[in-house]
Each structure stands twice: as C-alpha cells, then as structure tokens.
Design a protein around this nucleic acid. Structure first.
Lengths: 243, 243
DNA sequence: CCGGTGGCGCATGTATACATAAGATGGCCA
DNA sequence: TGGCCATCTTATGTATACATGCGCCACCGG
C-alpha cells in the first residue's frame, strides 16, 4: 500500500518514522514520548502508536518509564566506546568458536569471496563506499554465523543494531582518500588474519584478532570525538548521543 | 488491588501469569499465543494481553511471528550451554574491566562481606539454599557493577534473565549434601580468586577465572542432561527446554 | 507565612466494535 | 481424481470511548 516505506500497517510506518527520529537525534535521549501527541501528529490512533513504541523498546532504543510510558534511551560517550568493545568481545568469541568447533566450509568459501570483493573495492581509485559497506557487513555476518551458535549470533545482531556499533559505522566521515585507503587496507589485513586463524584452528589468535579489529573502530570514534564539533558534525551514527 | 501478585494492572498480572507458564514449560517452545484465546481465559480484554505479550518479547521469551502474532521461543540443549558460556564471556569481560579500570572501593568491600556470608552458609551443617542463592546472586551482580560499564551491566542482566543462565541456576538439584558442599566450596574459591585478581589489577587472570567459573555451571548442566530423565525431572530451570 | 488538603487535568489502562488480510476449506470443473 | 478458485473463518490491525490513577496547583486554615 505505502510505496514510500514499503510497509502496510500504520504501526509499521510509525515504527519506522519514530526510529528514524531517534537515530537522527531529532528526539534526544531522555525525551518522553506521549501516545496522544504522537497519535495526533501522525494522524493515527493510539493503538498502532503503542505497538510501535513496544517494538522500539525491544530494539533498546526506548526504555519503559516508571509508572508507564516510554523514554528515549540516552547514550553517553562512554557507552559508544563500551558498545564497540562489547562487539569486539562477542565477535572474538564467535571467531574462537569457529576455530574450536570448525567453521562450515561453505561459509569459509563465501568469506573468501567477500574478501576478494573488498580487495577489488579498496584498490579502486575512487572507493565505492556503499559497496564496501555491504561487503564489510556481510563479512561480519559470516563471522557470527561461523560460530555455529544461534545464541551468540543473536546477541551480536542485537548489539550491532545500534548505529554506532555497526561494523560499518563511521565509514562516511573520511575526507581524505589516502587515509581512508590506508584504514580500509589495515582492516582488510585483519579480516584475512581472522579467517586464517579460524582455518588453522588457532582459537586464541582468532579471538584476539577479532577483538583488536573492533578496537580499530573504537580508535576511530575516539579520534572523532576528540576533535569535537568540527568532525563530529555530520557523522550520522553519532547523532543520537546525549552530550 | 491484587494481593496475590502485588500488581495492580491487568497487563501486569497477565505478564506474570504467562511468564510463569512459559518458564514452567506449560507453554512449550513454538506454541503460538492467540490474543483472543488468552483474553477469554484470563477474563480480560485483548488490550492488556497485547501489552503483556510485547513485554515478554522484550524479555526474549517470545518472538514475533511473520505476519504478526507471537510464538514461544524454543531453546535447544545447545542453547543452554551456549548461553551459560556467553555469561562466562560477559562476566569475564566485567572482571577484566574491573581489574583494568579499578573497581569501586565500596563495591569491593561489599564483595568481601558477601564472600564471608557465603562462607558462613556453606560451612553450616545443613546448607540454607535460599540464603546461598541470594548471596551468590549478589556477588555476580557486584561483579557486573564493578566493571564500571553500564552497557556491559545491562547485557549481563539480559542474558542472566534466562532461568538456566542465572548464576544461581541448578542449585536445588543436589541430593547429597557432601557433593553439594564440595561444589559450593570450589565455586567460592573461584569467587575469592576473581576478587583477588581484580584487587591486584591482574586483568587477564580475572577474565580467565570468571570464564572458568561459568564453565563449572556448564559442567553441572551437561552432567544433568547426560543422565536424562532421571535427574532432569524436577529441575525447574530446564522446564522450558524443547526436547 | 506555611502546611495540608481538595480537586482538576492529563496520561496511561482497558474494553469493545469494526476493518482487513491471510489461511483453511469445500465444491466444482477439467 | 486432482487441482484450482471462491468463500468463509479467524486472527490481528485500528479506532474510539470510557476508566483510573497520579501529580500538580491552588486554596483554605492554622
């Protein structure tokens, strides 16, 4: 019905609208969301609004307030760093499991295909960031899958859902091409090393490498944040930060 | 209003009732929950039922079905083991952070008090399991708190919410006193070692110890499951398992 | 001037009627 | 006899009216 969003129900559209507003910082952390106000603004009834709010709470973007109601979750700078580190810990565990238990051959093969794809993108003169982002995301997805643990995979997906903890966060903020190429090249080296460790069943090495790989993303954030407004401006992934 | 459950709203009561049914295995994994049926049975309208179902989805006990509706999440045996291991990984990270960043003095002091309390309970002739359970839970809560990371603390709380991943799961299934006392004594040694490592800022040791501590719980589960029906019967924490 | 108390208003809780879409079912036709 | 289509059932989606409960503010009494 709704060609714009591709969804049919009011609740779905409200969910998408509100999520976008939270992620963009338009609804800052700590903001309380009132059902009636939202219902009037979106021109629908309270019922689909409540459904949307519930789902946003599942995504951890909202928290239930005491005595009912929802409040936009607020993220401090330390939370961003901790979440990225947490992703490193979880992906490290995934890599370790893959090495210990043995990764599925088809997944490993696909990983090599993805790695070659990233090579092609990075070596190109003008880097296609969308293509890189897609391939990078798939690599991290494959890594989680290789763990062979549904529980772990699910948990990684949860943490990764936060925009600043996504493997492909902070990719669109590199102004100079040479710096970007160097950064992506280093990340790619780590990708290769992780797969190599998994294939050689070196679980400790695999875990350490995956952790360190996330650490690079953390360094990137810390660099962005140390330069305050100048760089932080226009970094979409950080729009929902509190301070 | 409701003296039994101590809650006031219909949604709260429905939440408690349904959660109990899922955890007890009365509603097996894969069961689809129909709003109308539940509403009639609990003699309330669909609205509070939907509220309760949403909250159960937040607790990961329910999953949203394609095309709407909710299904009871099903846990395989491997999921139990993986979740306990995941707790170990997360608590290991908490212990490492505490060692690296330095734990709050008040929390450390409280931890020592708890450890002395556990000593008293364990050395007693007939062990007061409720007292042990409460102290053990508090110890693990303190550990998460010592990490100094809200993100990590929250994630540990999420994982720990599952009954079989709780630090105090599988405590009421020990028939012989001597075995129990030995088990709890070993766990207590690990508790002490973890705190010692944190106090001496030995982060690697702290992380390893916390992981191994969870591993003990995992061994306990694997033992229970290897003896099938005989032991598994009557272990409340495992009631919601699929097979 | 201060403290308590009453009421009022707002936000969520609840019930219910109606809309809609997807799946089950039965019959009909090839 | 098998497959397809219409229809009907059923479950969720949505709107709306009413209930409830809590907090705030003002007013009154000391």
């Amino acid at each position: 019905m709704d060609a714009q969003t591709g969804t049919s129900t009011h609740a779905q559209r409200a969910l998408i609208t509100l999520r976008q507003r939270i992620l963009s910082g338009q609804l800052p952390g700590g903001t309380r969301l009132f059902e009636v106000a939202l219902a009037e603004e979106l021109a629908i009834s309270r019922t689909p609004i409540r459904a949307a709010l519930s789902q946003l709470a599942e995504e951890t973007l909202l928290e239930r307030a005491k005595g009912g109601g929802f409040v936009v979750r607020s993220f401090k700078l330390a939370d961003v760093v901790d979440t990225i580190d947490l992703r490193g810990v979880l992906e490290g565990t995934a890599a370790r499991y893959a090495a210990e238990r043995g990764a599925d051959a088809a997944l490993l093969e696909r990983a090599h295909v993805v790695l070659r794809g990233i090579d092609a993108v990075v070596s190109d003169q003008s880097i296609d960031m969308d293509a890189y982002s897609a391939l990078n995301s798939e690599f991290h997805l494959l890594l989680a899958h290789m763990s062979g643990s549904d529980i772990l995979q699910r948990e990684i997906a949860r943490v990764t859902a936060l925009p600043f903890a996504s493997p492909s966060a902070f990719l669109d903020d590199h102004t100079r091409i040479d710096t970007l190429q160097k950064t992506l090249g280093a990340a790619q080296d780590q990708h290769r090393a992780i797969i190599d460790a998994i294939e050689h069943r070196e679980s400790g090495r695999a875990e350490s490498l995956a952790r360190e790989h996330a650490r690079a993303a953390r360094r990137n954030v810390e660099y962005l944040l140390s330069h305050e407004a100048a760089l932080r401006e226009g970094v979409a992934s950080l729009a929902l930060l509190s301070n």
